[in-house]
Design a protein around this nucleic acid. Structure first.
Length: 581
RNA sequence: GAGUCUAUAGCUCAGAUGGAUAGAGCGUUAGAUUGCGGAUCUAAAGGUCGGAGGUUCGAGUCCUCUUAGACUCGCCA
């Protein structure tokens, strides 16, 4: 994965790289790719070239190599202010004015488009969320939604054409369980008649089933009978199914709307689950699969370190994996995707390995373009979430709780903001807290969710970054004229706080690149948090509006640039920046 | 039993492609604003990067072994 567009940092650094490479070749060391690092401390410069690896080939001390390259570098100027040899490192200090004059006006001019990659003309399908229609969304879905949505935004920003897919799991035995409980105990009630959000209404009957079946084991058989009736198209069963699915899906849709999650296309398992049978037949014909004497169809994946896996039951009905096979083939036909990313929990790693191995055995050239982005489970202090034990953290309730906390915090500030606006702001803050919290983990890791502690508004949180945007927005509105350019005099002397921010602004594009390449929203979280910290320190220690015209303009340009980048990065996380809070 | 993933400060977590004294937040302690938003800022204390070997000039990062935990290994989804 690479994007042909060059970042500002690359433009600056490549010029310097060229000189370093030439210089090394004069010493008879031919390299085509040079390693650049960022020194651990700003006082050590803006870029560093470690010379250790050339030492043995050149039979020179790293220090002497660095010294030799330094001589050549000092002769070639422009973006370089000075160079220094320290140990085996050659440290380069950028010309602050030259770099600033390049980056700040560019950010301000491009605004939200700064850092956006050129279009790659490659289509990426991102499947995420994939709820069941027998219960409301819970905390685990929140993590999935946050990751899937953010990843889609990142990939789009980087240059891919992203299709967001939601495959709704609307059929199967678990759906029939809630249907059965409603049929037996519902007495014609509706979400409206009991005044309940419709997906919660449906979920209550799923819980009801779990409780009742303990004393009435026959219900299990009734549920599977119902599934059979559904597959046969029994009218009254289908009618009930449509009614309850309608409730579940409309309730879940409300939760998506509140979270700011949407999809390019919504797929229904009920419409796709039979497709895989044709793929199985194709595989049999190709000799990729084999049939057992009882009629079941299998694939043998032992050659790739996996096991044998059934693809079709002996009665000819399809299995979970069969649908995934059919769905993927259908997606390739419909979208001609270049990549297909499944955002699904880590408990399904084995399943996707098997699935992708099947694609390879079928000879699909797109098999290697499928990727399972697995994420760890969300745990509670008392253990894992189990819907049957009722210890799940419900998504709607959680958002309500966070909303109330945010609203209380706003009210404490006693700002002159209307009640309506306060409410809107509280909503944005609470979502930011939730999403940022869930994204600020490596995806592979399990998340420990401690309700009282984990979602806070202080420190490394979404609201902290929003606060920074509100602060800058407030500054902008008090600055008089809008900041639409960056006037930087050639003789301007940047202080450490100013330069610290500017040099970090140079890193934004790289962060986006890493986030896109590694499918890693946490990379953006870290970047935004670091930038916010740098800015808040700068803001705390430096005056802006009361300074003279020259300094004021430069600092406003820096502030404006930070605001643009923070807003851009928050957007990649699916979080709104704020004017006020 | 096999496979995959995880292990970094009291707690919760960052540390892409190996590089300079391993970084945050929370919590604890001590401070900062007669100034543009205190949901802010500064500082202190707190680490054998689970353990043992190995590769390398250099390892939290790569390799081997090992310990602990999670997940998976179904004609469930």
């Amino acid at each position: 994965m690479n994007n042909a567009g060059k970042t500002v940092k690359e433009v600056v650094i490549e010029e310097i790289n060229g000189v370093v490479i030439d210089s090394l070749s004069k010493l008879n060391c031919i390299v085509d790719n040079i390693v650049t690092e960022i020194p651990p401390d700003l006082s050590l410069g803006d870029a560093a070239y470690p010379m250790f690896k050339y030492s043995s080939a050149l039979k020179m001390k790293p220090y002497d190599i660095a010294l030799s390259v330094k001589n050549d570098l000092d002769a070639a100027r422009s973006f370089i202010e000075k160079t220094e040899v320290k140990g085996g490192y050659l440290n380069v200090y950028f010309n602050k004015t030259a770099v600033s004059k390049k980056i700040l006006p560019l950010i301000i001019a491009k605004g939200a488009d700064f850092g956006k990659g050129r279009r790659l003309n490659q289509k990426v399908l991102v499947e995420f969320s994939s709820p069941n229609t027998n219960k409301p969304l819970h905390l685990g879905h929140c993590r999935n939604n946050a990751i899937g949505d953010s990843l889609s935004r990142i990939l789009d920003f980087y240059g891919y054409d992203v299709i967001k897919l939601n495959l709704i799991n609307d059929r199967g035995i678990h759906i029939c369980k809630s249907m059965l409980a409603y049929k037996l105990f519902g007495a014609g009630a509706t979400p409206d008649s009991v005044g309940k959000k419709s997906d919660h209404f449906v979920g209550d009957y799923y819980v009801k089933y779990a409780n009742e079946v303990k004393n009435a084991p026959d219900m299990e058989k009734e549920a599977s009978d119902m599934l059979r009736l559904w597959e046969e198209g029994d009218p009254s069963t289908i009618e009930l199914w449509k009614k309850m699915n309608g409730w579940a899906i409309s309730g879940i849709k409300q939760t998506y709307d509140r979270m700011g999650i949407n999809f390019t296309d919504i797929e229904y398992e009920s419409a796709l689950y039979l497709l895989g049978k044709e793929v199985v037949a194709e595989g049999l014909k190709k000799g990729a699969f084999y049939k057992e004497s009882d009629g079941s169809v299998w694939v043998n994946n032992e050659d790739v370190g996996l096991d044998k896996k059934a693809l079709l039951r002996s009665d000819g009905t399809s299995i979970y994996i069969t649908q995934d096979m059919g769905t993927a083939v259908e997606r390739q036909k419909k979208y001609k995707f270049d990549k297909l990313v499944y955002v699904v929990g880590s408990e399904q790693i084995y399943h996707f390995k098997t699935l992708f191995a099947v694609f390879k055995k079928l000879g699909y050239e797109w098999a290697s373009n499928c990727y399972h982005l697995s994420y760890g489970m969300v745990n509670l202090p008392e253990g894992k979430m189990k819907s049957r034990e009722g210890n799940v953290v419900d998504a709607d309730n959680l958002m309500d709780l966070l909303y109330q906390m945010a609203l209380d915090a706003i009210n404490d500030k006693e700002r002159e903001i209307s009640a309506v606006e306060k409410s809107a702001i509280a909503e944005k803050i609470s979502l930011s807290a939730l999403k940022y919290y869930l994204l600020n983990f490596s995806t592979a890791k399990d998340v420990m969710f401690i309700p009282e502690k984990s979602i806070s508004f202080d420190g490394n949180t979404g609201p902290y970054i929003q606060y920074t945007t509100a602060r800058i927005n407030s500054l902008m509105s008090k600055s008089g004229a809008p900041v639409d350019n960056a006037d930087i005099p050639d003789d301007y002397t940047f202080n450490e706080d100013e330069w610290g921010i500017i040099s970090y602004l140079l890193e934004y594009e790289k962060s986006v690149k890493i986030a896109a390449a590694e499918y890693s929203p946490v990379e953006i979280c870290s970047y935004l948090y670091n930038l916010s910290k740098l800015y808040n320190k700068f803001y705390h220690d430096n005056q802006i509006l009361s300074e003279g015209d020259v300094v004021k303009k430069v600092r406003l340009a820096i502030s404006k640039s930070v605001l643009i980048i923070l807003t851009s990065g928050l957007n990649l996380l699916g979080i709104s920046s704020l004017e006020r809070m």
